[in-house]
Computed example of a mutant assay.
Amino acid sequence: MAIVKDNNLLLQAVTGSLGDEITIYERNGQIIVAKKRGPSKKKPTKKQLEARYKMKIAAAYAVAIIKDPEIKAYYKSLAGPGQNAYNMAVKDAYNSPEIQRIRFEDETVVVTAKNEFRVAEVAIRIVDAAGSILERGKAVLGRNGVDWHYKATGLPPGGKLIIVAVDLPGNETVREVRLE
């Protein structure tokens, strides 16, 4: 790969491939000359097929979501040089939120959930030892922007807490905690 440094008149108006040898394209205002790549002759692995499917879903989300002017403006505000709202929406849809920490402050469950973009909601279910749902609800985002608070009516010993963090594209991360 070569980056053309000077304002070359010949390459300034040229993009595309020249035969089967080289490709000329522009990225971030720079002209790049690279060896032309062809399709791979190897059969894709299972992981590659999964990644392709995940990218296909993320791209479909991005196409649909940037039709909403508010959400498009949100993603555009996060874009860096050479990026746009579509790129940010694909990146958001490709990654799930992360539940980093769960702690108890008396009867309040505090969940620290992060995402590179935004965690849309955190839902809590409290299940007893027999598997019956005793309580469910949505946590409230704290002032620091990462801690979600849920005031439980009771935490039964031997039961479990099921926490679901959801981001803007709808990716879910589920964590279960046994109650002692």
Results as ranks from 00 to 15, higher is better:
117 F>D: 14
116 E>C: 10
111 V>G: 07
121 E>V: 10
92 D>I: 01
102 I>W: 02
107 E>G: 15
120 A>Q: 14
95 N>M: 07
95 N>L: 06
104 F>W: 11
91 K>S: 08
110 V>K: 04
113 A>S: 08
121 E>D: 14
119 V>I: 05
100 Q>W: 08
116 E>L: 13
101 R>D: 14
104 F>P: 01
113 A>N: 07
91 K>C: 02
98 E>Y: 07
116 E>V: 08
115 N>D: 14
113 A>Y: 03
109 V>N: 00
114 K>Q: 14
100 Q>G: 12
121 E>W: 10
92 D>Y: 01
109 V>K: 01
113 A>C: 09
117 F>S: 11
107 E>S: 14
117 F>K: 12
111 V>Q: 06
120 A>Y: 11
119 V>D: 04
109 V>R: 02
118 R>V: 13
111 V>N: 06
114 K>Y: 11
91 K>L: 09
121 E>G: 13
93 A>M: 00
118 R>H: 15
91 K>I: 05
97 P>F: 05
112 T>K: 12
91 K>N: 07
96 S>M: 06
95 N>Y: 08
112 T>S: 13
93 A>K: 00
100 Q>P: 08
119 V>T: 07
108 T>V: 13
111 V>P: 06
120 A>H: 12
99 I>H: 04
117 F>Q: 11
115 N>K: 12
112 T>Y: 08
91 K>Q: 09
115 N>H: 15
121 E>I: 13
102 I>K: 04
109 V>F: 04
94 Y>P: 04
92 D>E: 01
118 R>Q: 14
111 V>M: 08
91 K>H: 06
117 F>G: 10
98 E>W: 05
91 K>T: 02
108 T>W: 03
102 I>P: 05
110 V>I: 13
98 E>K: 09
106 D>F: 00
104 F>N: 07
103 R>S: 08
105 E>D: 13
121 E>P: 09
104 F>S: 07
115 N>S: 13
114 K>I: 13
99 I>F: 01
106 D>H: 03
119 V>Q: 05
114 K>M: 13
106 D>P: 00
102 I>Y: 01
97 P>K: 04
94 Y>F: 12
108 T>C: 07
107 E>K: 15
109 V>M: 05
106 D>K: 00
95 N>I: 01
93 A>Y: 01
118 R>T: 15
113 A>M: 06
119 V>L: 06
100 Q>T: 12
99 I>Q: 04
116 E>K: 10
109 V>Q: 02
110 V>M: 01
99 I>E: 03
96 S>C: 05
98 E>S: 08
105 E>A: 11
105 E>P: 09
98 E>H: 07
121 E>Y: 11
91 K>F: 04
110 V>T: 03
94 Y>W: 11
117 F>I: 10
113 A>F: 05
92 D>W: 01
111 V>Y: 07
115 N>F: 09
97 P>D: 03
117 F>Y: 15
116 E>F: 11
120 A>G: 12
103 R>P: 00
105 E>Q: 12
105 E>Y: 11
119 V>S: 03
112 T>M: 09
103 R>C: 05
109 V>T: 02
98 E>G: 02
101 R>E: 14
113 A>V: 03
105 E>V: 13
119 V>E: 06
94 Y>S: 08
118 R>A: 15
107 E>H: 15
